[in-house]
Computed example of a mutant assay.
Amino acid sequence: MKTKNKKTLCALLLVAVGIFSYSLWLPLRPVDIIAVHHRGHGSSAVLVKNFPFTDKGKMSWWLKNKDVLKDKHKIPSPASDGSFVVVFWDFGDGYKETDGYDNLCFNDMKPPMNCIEKNSLLMVRNSENTGSYFVLDSGTYRMNNKGDIVKNKSD
């Protein structure tokens, strides 16, 4: 084999190993909870970085961490009827000034740096009538009585 071919093969192998290693590391990154904003009436906004990519990963992360979130961050914070909504938002580039149009701004912070871009990652809802369900870009998933998560057929 020529030297040029060996160098090319070596470079390609190195790139492949790098990509493979990165793809193994990516899902193992810990989720960073940047802030929690309690919005009243059982609603909370959680700003995160490094949230899982897949729908299954997001729902599994919630189920695995909901007790820690309750103890450490007081979420969910149910309304008087027991219902709650927790929305996980991508913190992205951090807090910014409102664009006057489509940013999500938090009243529990002083302006101007009290808004984020709207990029919801996961919504967890629970009520007595509907039970627990997850809202994601790809659809709505409900938790049945057996604890199985099933995608709504209408989505």
Rank of each mutant, 00 (worst) to 15 (best):
M1I: 06
T3G: 02
N5H: 13
K6L: 15
K6A: 14
T8R: 13
C10E: 03
L12F: 07
L13A: 15
G18Y: 02
G18I: 04
F20W: 07
W25I: 15
L28T: 07
L28M: 14
R29C: 04
V31Y: 05
D32N: 06
D32T: 04
I34H: 02
R39A: 11
R39N: 15
G42P: 10
S43T: 12
S44H: 00
S44R: 04
A45N: 14
L47D: 01
F51Y: 15
K56S: 07
K56Q: 14
G57A: 14
M59H: 02
W62Y: 11
W62C: 08
D67V: 02
K70D: 06
H73V: 00
P78Y: 00
D81W: 01
S83G: 09
V85N: 12
V86P: 03
V87R: 02
V87Y: 01
G94K: 03
Y95M: 12
E97M: 14
Y101N: 15
L104E: 02
F106A: 10
N107Q: 09
K110V: 04
N114W: 01
C115A: 13
I116W: 02
I116T: 09
K118L: 07
N119C: 11
V124D: 00
R125T: 08
N126Q: 05
F134R: 09
V135W: 05
G139P: 08
Y141G: 02
R142T: 08
K146Y: 08
K151S: 05
K151A: 10
S154P: 06
D155G: 11
